[in-house]
Structure formats: structure tokens, C-alpha cells
Amino acid sequence: MSFKKDLRLLVKPYYLINIFLSISYILSKRTPIICNYIFAQGDCELDGRETEILFFLLFVIMIRTRKTGSVTMINYLTSSFVYTKVTNLLLWLYADVRMGILFAFIFILCGLILPEPTYQGPENIIYLRGANGLQEELRDTKVVWLIAFYTAWNPACVTFAPVFAELSAEYALENFKFGKVDVGRYPDAAIKYHVSDASTSKQLPTLILFKNGKEVERRPYADHRGKLVKFLFSLDNVKAAFDLNNIYNDCKNNPIKRKEKKSLKAE
């Protein structure tokens, strides 16, 4: 996503309200009129304990957003909302239990009525049913496949979903297809293609490129010592790692002929 697209997304209620909740305590404590009314104190400054909590929050957000592969402003915000709101809840409880309970009620209510906006743009993705579904598609060796192995609950997979959708809309052809396999739902695919679907897995998402029905490239991959090489799933990184521009041009210049299509249907 471009910066302009991120700015357009920020005006949606989900982001505006969550940003407000994320800064509610600091805003209340540092605004004299609000501070004097809520906290009944003339010195509207953060004390030592509050400062320590906020610094710890900043450290946690930096670590967690890097692990989830956040690469845009919206990704960073989305990844950090849970931590910032929990921190605000602790700060409100620390200041006044009644205000903490009120904040918790608003926190839960917003989570119920304001779900995170999902990607609404174009996509050209085929959702495959496990290892057997993928193997069936790979029988046609004339088609190049880029497959995303993911789970619905993994934050990095959620972050990558709109990126993969944009790539599919831009590059998909009749002989260059984009597919997704939910390894949480179809663990047989995870076993067959050596993708860990554990809650602590660093292999989610995993992208594998298939040519002639065989794997030729994947990210992330293991080095000669068996250690996973970290990969940041941004739009440009995926294009470069899998050489999508050249694959697209090759497939476009060598389309499947009609006779081949008929013979495939006959099979």
C-alpha cells in the first residue's frame, strides 16, 4: 500500500476510534482542562510509574511489529492497537478504578461493533483445499503457481493478505496463477510442504513458487545450517525475490494454446 492509501484508510471509524483510545490517557493527563476535571490535580504531568509503563509499551510495540512483518503505517497501527489499548487500560486503572472500568467497557464495545476493515480491492486468487487440491492443480505443468501458505489467526498472514491480493490482481494470467492454502484448516498441506503451523511458527506466511509442477523458490527459506532466513513480505520484496516481472512476461509471451486446453480438459 502507498502512503496515500494509508491516509485514506485512516479516516475510517475503526482507525480513528482506536487511535483515540490509544492516546486517551496521555491526552487526558496532558490537557489542563481535562486533567483538572478528571484527576483533580493542578500539576498535569506523568509520574515516574506512568512514564515507565509508556516506555515499556514503546519497546513492546517495536519488537512485536517487526515480528509480524509490518511494513506500512497502517500495519504498524493495526499491530500496535491491542498493546496501546491494554496499556491505557492499566494506566486508567492505576489512576482511578472507576475510569479503568469505563475504559474497559468502551474497549470491549468497540471491538464488538468495529471490526478491522478487510481488503476490498481486486484479487485473482484460487483458494485450494489442502495438499490434494494443490497437487491436482500442479498436474498441469504449463501453469506457473505462486502459492501462499497461511493461517487465518496469524497476524503476519493477515498483514500480508492485501499485498498478495494486489500481486494477484497485477500479475495473474491463465498460465500464471496465484493460490492460497490455509494450513490451519488443512494441516496435511503444512506437513507435505514443510510449513510449520504452530502458534510460534516463523514460517507463516510461506510463499512457494511452482514451475513444471515442482517447487523452485520459497520465502522464507532455510540456509545451509537449517536456520530460517527472515523475509519481509512487502510488495517490492516479493516481486524481486520471485522475479515476478520476468515470469509474467514469459507467461504472457507463451500462452496456453487452444489445442493444449482441449487436451487438458479431456484428461
Rank of each mutant, 00 (worst) to 15 (best):
S28D: 05
L7H: 04
V238P: 00
N175G: 00
G42E: 15
R30N: 00
I147D: 09
V229L: 07
A131F: 03
F56A: 15
L112P: 02
A104Q: 02
L112S: 08
T118Q: 15
F160W: 01
E50S: 13
A161N: 07
K180Y: 01
S79W: 02
V183T: 07
I126A: 10
R139G: 01
L204N: 06
T118E: 15
P220I: 05
T87Y: 02
L173N: 01
M62S: 12
A240D: 09
E170G: 02
F59E: 08
L109D: 01
T78F: 01
Y127M: 09
A222H: 12
T118N: 14
G42N: 15
I23L: 11
G130T: 05
A156N: 09
L173T: 01
V97K: 14
K227M: 06
A95N: 06
L232N: 08
V11K: 14
N253L: 11
L109F: 09
T200L: 11
E50A: 15
I101P: 05
L21F: 05
L134D: 08
E217Q: 11
P205L: 03
A161G: 01
N36P: 00
K259H: 05
N237I: 08
L16Y: 03
Q120I: 11
F242H: 05
E260C: 04
L167M: 00
K202L: 12
S28K: 10
K142R: 14
H194Y: 13
F55S: 14
P187L: 03
G226A: 06
Q41C: 08
E116V: 11
I147Y: 03
F105Q: 08
S201G: 12
F149V: 09
I125G: 08
Y15A: 09
L27D: 07
R49T: 13
S70I: 03
G133C: 06
C35G: 03
K85V: 10
K180P: 02
G69Y: 02
V71E: 12
D140Y: 01
I63P: 03
S24E: 00
F20L: 15
S196R: 12
L204A: 02
D47I: 01
N88Q: 04
F160C: 07
K257H: 06
G48K: 11
K259V: 10
L204S: 05
P117E: 07
L114S: 08
F231Y: 13
R258E: 13
C251R: 13
V144F: 05
V86F: 15
P122G: 11
F81A: 03
K239Q: 04
L207I: 10
I33Y: 01
F149P: 11
I34K: 03
A148Y: 00
V181L: 09
F56Y: 10
L134C: 06
F103M: 11
K12D: 13
S24R: 00
V238A: 00
W92A: 12
V144S: 13
K214W: 00
E116D: 07
F55V: 15
